[in-house]
Write a protein that binds this DNA or RNA. Sequence first.
DNA 1: CCCGTTCAAACACCGACGTA
DNA 2: TACGTCGGTGTTTGAACGGG
Length: 336
Amino acid sequence: MDDFTSQCCSLIKKVDEILKYNSEWVQRYGGYAKQILLNEDDLKYKKTNFNEWAPLYLYMTIGEAKGNLLFSLRYVGQDVAKLKVDGQGVTIATNSFTERNMRDFGCNIHLSNHSWSSKEASDFRKHFSNKPIRLDVSKKNDEHRVESLLLTEFSKSDSKDKMICNIQPVKFSGIARFQMKTPLTSSNISNICYEKKAGSGGGIDIISRIGIGRGTKLCVMEVKDENVAAEPPRNAVLQGLSYGVFVLNLLRSESGDLWWKIFGFKGKLPDSLELYIVCTMPSSEVNDISFAEKVINYKQDFFHLHYLYFQEENQCIKKIETSLKQCKKKELLNDN
DNA sequence: CCCGTTCAAACACCGACGTA
DNA sequence: TACGTCGGTGTTTGAACGGG
């Protein structure tokens, strides 16, 4: 076993112990799952009342999905408004985002429960469809922006202008983008902590389904907005792996079959899972591919390690280099 | 501002594909 | 073989666009 693999194994063991020692998540996440599934039909119905209009995308937190079913509307991954659907129809409110909308996107439209079909709401959508330049120079939100670009790319259902195929992001009820929160903080790999407070743990950047047909696999992607020596790809793999250990524990917990459903699978939870862990970051001059296709056994399940290096251009993902073979386009496979 | 036109999103259906 | 999931195609619907 090479050094990196043994580093992975000791990390898996450590996270496994943390989750065993702090078992309160089992009940907590079981409760989330029941509430989210109870709300599923309501959420789908609410969505039939309006269209998602690029480049504004619908998001929902776990809290919103299990509670009030407010949609978050985001531009380049940043909250710009909340949508509410009730007996009165669809309404949009910018409430606490107004100031940042002005500061970051030059948007001076203030909405407080305006109708989705009102002139004001239409002007608001139009402002963002003109692709406003981010006025804020700090790159604080760049990871959210990059995540959003990747989600838009992976969500495409037409392979003609899709960089890679057979990948679809997991969304609540197939509708709202979300971040799968974990009870772990893993941003510092050498100091993984447990978080009891709901919503305070680290989130899985992108959780997606990969493959075609019955054997479609779940995939945890750890996204970085930079590919620099201080945060090398291997660290992203380790961070993704720590979240992966949580996902497998969740799927093997008493609410595992419910979460399998939430992740968008219609069939039975498999007896043995293959969970893909993908380091997802911008291409560098020499991309680290040393960990590609490593398989690590964990109880009855398996982790598969992969990379996905991308280039962007003009707010779009333009080129992807990946070890995910099942995602490669046919014409590219035949070229070899 | 209204209303017909145009365009993009959503939907319904089904074939391809890969797995149990 | 049966089944689950992605994506292709054609149609419907929601919202933008533009002329008057």
